[in-house]
Design a protein around this nucleic acid. Sequence first.
DNA 1: GCTTGACAACTACCATACCAGTTGCCAGAC
DNA 2: GTCTGGCAACTGGTATGGTAGTTGTCAAGC
Lengths: 233, 233
Amino acid sequence: MAISRLDDGKPINTQLIVLLRNRIVQGELLPGAKLSEAKIAADLGVSRQPVREAFIKLADEGLLEIRPQRATVVPKISVPRVMEVRFVREAIEADIVRLAATRFGRAEHGELARIIAAQEGADSVEEFIAEDDRLHRFLAEGVGQGYAWGVVESLKLQLDRVRFLTVRQFPKQSILDHHRAIVAGVVAGNPDRAEQAMRAHLNAINDDLPEIAKSMPELFEDHVGAGGQPDLA
Amino acid sequence: MAISRLDDGKPINTQLIVLLRNRIVQGELLPGAKLSEAKIAADLGVSRQPVREAFIKLADEGLLEIRPQRATVVPKISVPRVMEVRFVREAIEADIVRLAATRFGRAEHGELARIIAAQEGADSVEEFIAEDDRLHRFLAEGVGQGYAWGVVESLKLQLDRVRFLTVRQFPKQSILDHHRAIVAGVVAGNPDRAEQAMRAHLNAINDDLPEIAKSMPELFEDHVGAGGQPDLA
DNA sequence: GCTTGACAACTACCATACCAGTTGCCAGAC
DNA sequence: GTCTGGCAACTGGTATGGTAGTTGTCAAGC
């Protein structure tokens, strides 16, 4: 049941990827949830094959864990993994913003100001997040590194999963301050300032992550012991 | 025919991914080659399903282009795309080597020296490349960024495809000099020197790329026109 | 009560069959 | 000779059936 409207022109597998990805990132499917090709297929009124392909894709993105002949589960959030993903994102966007600081001209500076203004005026969280993405994307595409943004976007999924857990106490003011600092560095044509602002911005999650993990430990992987599950296989 | 030994314990789709990826990266399947799920499946004596999954995975990696109801082809090499991939790799490895320069101790310095020595003594191209990878991987994993190396590894596929075209005039001496400079910066505990050496190393492909593209233009995408194929759909 | 082994109920993986869309060829009309 | 329409031969996408492997349960034996 609950055929969540799968009737676009696009192939079914693609639609399933988007559908399931949203459910996982937005926390509708929580870490630990067990999925099954057959069940999902039956619920959505499609065959198991497209579901399987969606599972594989999401497993590649780190949003699912396929355990053959056992089950497919939404993995618990691994704090060390999140920090590693964040590291990669910071490295990429630091270089991007340096380029922007040296290459952007008046036209791009204007667009940056418009995005900041739109984000200030956003009244819903969804809109705020959309403008957030727009800023980062524009920086990348503006310096001709659209591919890099694609990489960041796939990494970001795992970070967004954490972000959606804290959507209540979403620090809008703090994020806006960070964005203003980044844009200021770019407009000033100062790569060092822009880079530092970007790194500080992306480091913010490190402040929140430990307390988030403590407040809802059932969603996080224990990493107290030396390593993972004591699988005696 | 030609069942290229697919009898490991691993799942068939995984084996197919590795098999096809090697054929593409190593230039056995050249840009422009047209593949077919059915044909590959018949040739290897398996069903179309695992072949299909391998196609999807390789398409994600940029090594195949699936055109529904038309064909699946090995894409021509896009010079701008290669440069964008290279940009991302440089950003990631620059930050990694900075960490290595500040964190590595005597034990890691010894391992770096051993890898350099092994690469100096390599007599086959394959061995040389293997030691090359080992150095980069060790830098990443040594600073606790194994995930970042995974990202680089998937990016590298598209760069390796170019590298294998030039395997004849492979600049071993130049690469070794670069590696020595990187290691020197790390051992000296000088992040700036290490970073600059790494960036210079990874920038080397930019010197060769234009002339490679000119010498074998049939393997490269024309990017003279404003944009891609004039698909009038 | 506790352990153990067989069975039932899952799982993901693979094979096969069918479907819809695209392409290219070729015959017929002009 | 050129153009056009339709059919045949592909393509990848989807549906379904069957198989091997894992897990949990429950009854039989100690």
